[in-house]
Amino acid sequence: MQEINKDSPSAEWISAIRQRFTVEKEIDHILTRKLERRSGPGYSPVTLASLVQSVESLLRTEIGDTFEIKDTRWLSGGASKLQMAFTLEWNRPGAGFENTAMVLRMEPAESIVETSRLREFQLLKACEAVVPVPSVFWCDAQARHLPYPALIYGFAPGVTKPSNASSGVSGLATHLPELVRNGLAPQFVANLAAIHLHDYRNADLSAFDVPRIGTTQCAEWGIDHWDRIWEEDSDEDIPLMRVVSAWLRRNMPLLDRASIVHSDYRTGNFLFTEHDLKISAWLDWELGRIGDRHQDLAWTTNRAFGHLDEDGKTFLVCGLMPEAQFFEQYEKASGMPVSARTVHWYKIYNSYSIAVLTLATGYRIARNGKTHQDVMVTWLIGIGYMILEEVRTLIAMEN
């Protein structure tokens, strides 16, 4: 059998991969683009000055010459993307001259999660009047101005955790005081229900395909997405990954309602203002899709995102509330049922996706020097085998 050089894939191999897996059109576009540019140079540091020049080029195209960029600085957070904060002095339509705090969110050469800035832009725009999100302004989806695809949105006030709280990487296992939990938990549930209930049909979501209700198409697209990335990025065959993929295909749930799915709905991905405990913005929509609400429910209740209550016994979903209470309040707020079986399927699906990203993509981009987060990505590879054990345990629960 001919050995495939995944670091410099041939056009024929890329074509075969595309034909083998059925994914949404925009997903196919970004994954194909990733492969086509993989043999190119790795990540090299980008200076603030060069980014400002690129943003100026974009803004001249969008709004003309009457603006000034000030107060540029790097932002932490959003671990898979490069982020620059700045202030734009401009003549804002309908508001006149003002100083607007903004954020540039841009890809590195390759990311641990390869996603579409256009899809992220469209989802934020679609949800502006539904839940708190940053205002979105411009998107350079094809990197005509920026070094890599990027979007620009408004800077949102708030914090991801109280100043005296502890958390792990990317907001994992954030420990919230009881007073903070009580203030945030009802909003947390209400916002999720609002996202899933939102009638998105009048929004511009042209970068999304909509799965057919009453079929397994939503589940099939998702499995094909992660199976394709595994084939593109992995460097060793892990039999359990094949077992998990086959199990997912044998047990695909039917879609009963097509909803906007955030796909990373958890503590650490929303901001809140400390003085009044109000959620001020939902962030990191890059993996969002139109699909099954149970994907969010399964992700949000993952034990990695929560912790035990002060009693040392009760697990708190995202550090906010017991799981039974979370599902009960969600059903009440949304008016939609929660299928325990479908949640279980998506728990396995979600864990499979994390295993793909850590064991395949994380390894490849770190080895090839494609990301600004090589140290963190290398660290994440180590949790991949813990995720595999979690998947094995979840599947064993079915037997």
Rank of each mutant, 00 (worst) to 15 (best):
P132G: 09
T215H: 07
Q122R: 03
L31E: 03
T87R: 13
L320Y: 02
V180L: 08
K278G: 05
F67I: 10
S135P: 10
V377A: 05
G64Y: 11
P147Q: 02
R37K: 13
R20S: 15
E331L: 05
H196K: 07
K332N: 11
T87V: 15
I4K: 04
V23G: 02
V189S: 04
E62T: 07
N368Q: 13
T342K: 08
T371R: 00
G78F: 00
A355R: 05
D256Y: 01
E236V: 15
E389V: 05
E390W: 05
C218S: 15
E98Q: 15
M106A: 03
L255T: 09
L283Y: 02
F315S: 09
M106V: 01
H344P: 08
D235N: 14
L88D: 06
V130S: 06
S111Y: 00
W90V: 09
S57G: 15
R92F: 11
S76E: 12
F315C: 07
E24M: 08
S57R: 06
K313N: 13
S111K: 01
P41A: 05
S39K: 09
H275G: 09
G64C: 13
T100H: 07
K81D: 04
D204Y: 06
E62H: 07
K6T: 11
P9S: 10
N191R: 05
R212H: 10
M321W: 00
T174V: 13
L35S: 05
R392I: 10
